[in-house]
């Protein structure tokens, strides 16, 4: 009987009204939240439907693919995968090996060379630093198509065409300015006192880079590694220009060859190989989603 006086008269009535209003508002909010979830899930399904359809089609026999909208296959044609794998003159084992080799070398090259440049820009002091930095930022804007032809002439004269050198060597020369930018942003946040303390203890700039900056920058390095992996895995234009022999082909080039040979209309196999080509990227995305999303927010990468 604590607030017996208040339970009577206009005050208690007002309370009741307030309670009703709040209940009504909560109900309204719950309903609008539910509607949002329904909309968002439907929209997500609509967005992902083509991908799901492709996965399902990769299990269907060729004559069931067109005109069939279902995303749950009734038969499982594993032959699409096993036969597709060996459908071209070389097997996909080789294409995956080639793609993996190029991708791994590219990731290593990008991490090393871009972190070198980023460390110089973020932490060291030298003549013309701002000038070089401005030039580096300008290269961010330059479309690859503009440098493509002279680069091709250069690599042709070096005898590098139909090897992996034109695809890999530039990555060891910090040609991906995006990653330099990303790393500069990250290095700048690290407390300068660390460098200064190490300097007083007699550490050289090289030691500081290796023993302080890199260990503290693992998240930025991870983000750069992941993007570099995904972009290289999907890269098409550079391999298309530089690789001629089918034995050197990467997975995207092999897929394109598959499309050209499509007259036999082996769509099941084509889809099976397409789905497999996406698997490494999807796995990377699922595992490293956190880094990817933070990386975009940090730098506005694509």
């Amino acid at each position: 009987m604590t607030d017996s006086v208040l339970d009577q008269g206009p005050i208690s009535e007002a309370r009741q009204v307030a309670r009703d209003l709040r209940a009504a508002r909560e109900k309204r909010e719950r309903r609008s939240r539910l509607l949002k979830h329904i909309f968002l899930s439907l929209f997500a399904f609509f967005m992902l439907y083509p991908l799901l359809w492709m996965v399902a089609s990769s299990f269907k026999p060729d004559n069931q693919i067109f005109g069939d909208l279902s995303i749950i296959p009734t038969t499982f044609m594993w032959q699409n995968f096993t036969e597709g794998w060996y459908a071209l003159r070389e097997s996909f084992t080789l294409f995956y090996w080639n793609s993996t080799l190029i991708t791994v070398l590219t990731v290593i090259g990008n991490l090393l060379s871009c972190s070198f440049a980023a460390y110089a820009f973020a932490r060291l002091d030298f003549t013309l630093k701002n000038f070089w930095f401005a030039l580096m930022m300008m290269t961010l804007m330059i479309p690859y198509h503009v440098v493509l032809i002279p680069q091709y002439v250069l690599f042709l004269n070096l005898g590098w065409v139909d090897t992996y050198l034109p695809l890999v060597v530039p990555k060891f020369l910090a040609s991906e300015a995006f990653f330099i930018f990303l790393m500069v942003q990250f290095f700048r946040q690290l407390p300068r006192e660390l460098d200064e303390a190490a300097m007083i203890d007699g550490c050289s700039p090289y030691k500081i880079y290796w023993a302080i900056i890199i260990p503290l920058s693992l998240p930025a390095m991870a983000t750069a590694a992941i993007f570099s992996f995904i972009w290289t895995w999907d890269d098409f234009l550079a391999p298309l220009i530089y690789l001629n022999d089918i034995a050197n082909y990467t997975v995207p080039l092999a897929l394109r060859l598959f499309v050209d040979a499509e007259s036999q209309s082996a769509f099941g196999q084509l889809f099976a190989m397409s789905v497999l080509s996406l698997v490494p990227v999807v796995v990377f995305f699922v595992v490293f989603q956190r880094f990817i999303i933070r990386g975009i927010a940090m730098s506005g990468l694509k």
């Binding site: 070198f116 110089a120 003549t127 440098v147 002279p150 250069l154 020369l173 910090a174």
Partner: peptide
């Protein structure tokens, strides 16, 4: 003062001249 900076910048500088600035000018000439 400058040595460490340019040592770390060296790969980028080589890349910049041979893969960006050089090719851009070369494609203008071409």
């Amino acid at each position: 003062k400058n040595a460490p900076g340019y040592v770390f910048l060296a790969p980028w500088l080589v890349g910049f001249f041979f893969l960006a600035a050089g090719p851009i000018l070369a494609s203008l000439v071409l």
